[in-house]
Design a protein around this nucleic acid. Structure first.
Lengths: 143, 143
DNA sequence: GTCGGTGCAAACAGTTTGCAAATAA
DNA sequence: TTATTTGCAAACTGTTTGCACCGAC
């Protein structure tokens, strides 16, 4: 069972409320797993397994719903590194990723490249906006 | 029916042979669609529809097999822009992508950023190598 | 003739959804 | 009490695979 003291609990509940989400038992527990241990990268399955391991009773469908809601409300960011499954990052700030294709692990990196400057070199079609500039360095075990 | 003259046909057959792939009717037809009209980005479905539209008789399973074989043998490159489906690019050189999240369209761009330079700033774990540095600018209709 | 390729259908992985029961406010 | 949320199972999308038949060499 994940241990929440009054203080942590209120932080999380407030954060959910600020995002316009009801602090249900499941959302509070998942937000606790996600946000109380630094920057993380999860998939639906990895978060589900972790929740079960911590004794949090939650269904996989709710994991999916919650990850999507958290992403829509800005608490998470989706990282597209694999055409087969979705990854989510608790770090919503500007940064880049190193993706290990063998293990599926993602690491944040700060390449100190100016995404806005890159974006400014793109001719954006009228009525469109840039929603992000993603940089992924791919790693694999040397053959 | 796709029209192949002697010359084009030989180019394609040779290209398949060089890649270590038997020039079957299906592979020749798909390679023709892919490589005889400049740089392109396709999904399995889009290539399947196009093939059927051109009167090329081929199954979807073969489209998948062929796209994977072409990618493995270096004729194509996979572009990871969507966590739901795979995109393939006939341009295997160093370049970046602009992805329209509404339409699914991909465009090549040359941001003249030095991927090798970026890569050099990453601390690569022992026994690992960088397989690519992907840059994707995401676009969406302005809200 | 041999070995690899193809097509079909079934299997699969990941994700979404309809609906009844449960819960936050 | 009322509107949301949850959990389950079923549905769905994209992709892979087993196997009999077909085709390139």
């Amino acid at each position: 069972m994940s241990e929440l003291n009054e203080h942590q609990h209120h932080d999380i509940v407030g954060r959910l409320r600020d995002a316009g989400l009801r602090p249900t038992r499941q959302r509070v527990a998942l937000a606790d797993l996600l946000f109380s241990q630094g920057d993380r990268h999860v998939t639906a399955e990895s978060l589900y397994d972790e929740a079960l391991g911590q004794g949090v009773r939650v269904s996989l469908a709710t994991i999916y719903n919650t990850l999507n809601q958290f992403t829509t409300s800005g608490l998470l960011r989706e990282v597209v590194v694999d055409s087969g499954k979705s990854y989510f990052d608790t770090n919503t700030g500007a940064h880049q990723h190193v993706f290990n294709e063998d293990t599926g692990d993602i690491e944040d990196v700060q390449l100190s490249l100016d995404a806005d400057e890159l974006a400014s070199r793109i001719s954006v079609p009228a009525g469109h906006e840039i929603t992000g500039v993603d940089v992924v360095v791919r790693l694999r075990r040397s053959s």
